[in-house]
Simulated assay, not measured.
Amino acid sequence: MTAANNEYPKASNATLIGATITYVAGLFLLLSFAGPYWIESYSGMFSSFKHMGLWEYCFDRFRFPSYQYDKYFDGCHYIFGQELYVIREWLLPAWLMAVQTFVTLALMLSFMAQILLACVVVRMPLRTVLRYEWIFVSISFVMVAISSVFLFLAVAIFGGNCYRRDWLLYPSFNVLSWSYAFAVIAFILFGLAAVLLFLESRKLYELRLEAKNLVAQMQHSQPEHALHQLRDQLHQQQQLGYFRN
């Protein structure tokens, strides 16, 4: 088996499909993570709230009723920026911080899983991947599965709380938007990829056990084979000696 002639086992179709789905899901997750359209107001309602994402809010001359000064919040601003500092406690409730945490962790885990799967697919480093492929795929499966669970929690928490009346004003004017939809798609794709990677990791582990058993049987049978050869040689020598006498 030589690397120069590409005479080494390639990644299986299940691994390739699982890796491809993971990459596509990671793209959807990245767009959802950065997109400022988790929820938006209907265009015909002329609401002062326009849209928001995990890290950004957009207003059109919005006045917060509980703020003691007559101040308008206008334009799009980073949630942790100075402009929204005075109303950040209202804009960032505990449940939304939980959503941010789950989506961030899912993004980090999926990115690490994509690196491991890329190593398995391109076979680099070759010896390490061929020796520990089942470990690479198993770790990728765990990361992708956890990412799917985190995204499920994120979309469930956000979908269950985004119409609360103690958060954005006039929640009936708002609707879930494409960034939220991308998070849902990513959650489904990660779940599908996790199933494929789990099946492939189990298959690779079984093949590894079979290879170990085969090597053990060969090592165990070698002394007996050598003993049989020695007996045959002694028997031949005895026959030669008998004919000479």
Rank of each mutant, 00 (worst) to 15 (best):
S148M: 00
P171L: 00
C162Q: 03
K10V: 07
P125D: 07
L107T: 14
R202T: 08
N174W: 06
L209H: 04
Y85Q: 15
L151S: 02
E40A: 05
P93F: 03
E206T: 12
S110R: 13
P36M: 04
F243G: 06
F33I: 06
S32F: 06
Q239R: 14
S172E: 04
L117S: 08
I79E: 09
K203E: 03
N5G: 09
Q100D: 06
F243A: 11
E56T: 12
F182W: 07
M52Y: 13
L107P: 01
R244S: 11
R131S: 12
A211C: 01
I21V: 11
L31S: 08
A193K: 02
P36R: 02
L92K: 15
L105K: 15
L91Q: 09
E40C: 07
L176K: 02
F141V: 03
P9F: 04
S43F: 10
K71C: 02
V122D: 13
L176T: 08
I87P: 01
L227G: 07
V129F: 04
A113K: 06
Q219E: 12
Y67S: 03
V121Q: 09
I157L: 07
V195N: 02
L151V: 01
A106R: 12
N161E: 04
R164T: 02
I135C: 06
M218P: 04
F64E: 04
Y8W: 05
A106D: 06
F243L: 12
V129W: 05
D70H: 11
I39G: 05
Y78F: 14
L91A: 11
A156C: 08
Q237K: 09
M52A: 13
A216L: 12
L117W: 10
W90S: 05
A186V: 01
Y180E: 05
G191E: 05
T15Q: 04
H225W: 10
Q236E: 11
R164D: 00
F62T: 08
G241H: 15
L84Y: 09
S177D: 11
N174Q: 12
F150M: 07
S41Y: 02
Y132S: 06
A226G: 07
T128G: 11
F243K: 15
P93W: 05
R123F: 13
S201W: 01
A154H: 03
V121D: 11
L54S: 04
E83R: 12
L169W: 10
F152T: 14
E89I: 09
M45R: 15
E56M: 05
